[in-house]
């Protein structure tokens, strides 16, 4: 007998559900849960992580993220404005900068600036936080410059014209009229970039951090070495999630609200 298209789709869906349930059941039965939880989520080790995972490691991650974000936002705004400038060399400089730092992996930039500069010049980074945060913010600024530029371009041209027609200079019109409107547009994508930055700070540990400047990922990794157990990494992952989930939910909320307002 011939099945209609809709019947076939229904049966196919049931088949997929059944297979998924079987797969989950098989895993649940076959996996040695005691062994797994001993290796990856051992309660005594979980407890050992606290409080220093929060007071030291997570704090360092937050410090790196905030330094990187603040620097990234300032430089990003600068390069966005340069890309939009009517002066051609400014546009070239900004475009080159953005392409370079977006095109090179953060890891390479971190090593090149964090180690390369001291080797090449004999100059030492005055502060281990800056050694990590400055390369991080340079890379972040390249991404943010593009986000900010898109936000500024999304503000209708008439806004700039109206402001100029009232006698405002270009910088005055940008600061008072265009950028406040652009900021509203770019808050969701900038929040996403903040989340990316939180995670990117985990790369800073390649610079050979001290105990005082150990970030969350490094803390987890050292914990694995010390305890010969994967639990510290799982806990570190959970702490990352505790930071990133509220932010991604916030972005989702802002986007829903923007859609509801219809703008």
């Amino acid at each position: 007998m011939a099945l209609s298209k809709r019947q076939r789709a229904t049966y196919a869906r049931y088949a997929i559900y059944t297979l998924s349930v079987l797969a989950v059941a098989a895993m649940a039965l076959l996996v040695d849960w005691t062994r797994l939880s001993n290796a990856m989520f051992k309660w005594e080790i979980v407890k050992e992580q606290f409080p220093s995972i929060l007071t030291s490691a997570a704090k360092n991650t937050v410090v790196f993220t905030i330094l990187g974000f603040a620097g990234g936002l300032s430089f990003g705004l600068l390069f966005a404005l340069m890309r939009l400038s009517s002066i051609r060399p400014y546009r070239w400089i900004a475009a080159t900068y953005i392409e370079i730092f977006r095109g090179i992996p953060l890891l390479v930039t971190l090593l090149a600036l964090g180690f390369g500069i001291p080797i090449a010049t004999g100059w030492q980074w005055p502060n281990p936080y800056l050694q990590g945060a400055i390369p991080l913010s340079l890379v972040a600024s390249a991404y943010m410059a593009e986000t900010i530029r898109a936000g500024i371009e999304a503000v209708p041209k008439g806004q700039m014209e109206a402001a100029r027609s009232l006698g405002m200079s270009y910088p005055r019109a940008m600061i008072t009229i265009v950028i406040p409107q652009a900021l509203r547009i770019i808050v969701p994508p900038l929040t996403n970039e903040f989340v990316l930055l939180i995670k990117d700070t985990s790369l800073i540990s390649v610079l050979g951090v001290t105990d005082a400047t150990r970030d969350l990922a490094r803390f987890g990794r050292d914990g694995v070495t010390d305890s010969a157990n994967a639990t510290p990494l799982i806990v570190a992952g959970l702490v990352y999630l505790a930071m990133t989930l509220p932010l991604t939910q916030l972005v989702a909320y802002m986007e829903r609200r923007a859609k509801a307002v219809g703008k």
């Binding site: 209708p156 008439g158 806004q159 109206a162 402001a163 027609s165 009229i177 406040p180 509203r184």
Partner: peptide, 11 residues
């Protein structure tokens, strides 16, 4: 100057 699209500052 007064524009066709008003161009008031929405914020």
């Amino acid at each position: 100057m007064v524009f066709q699209q008003f161009n008031l500052f929405p914020h």
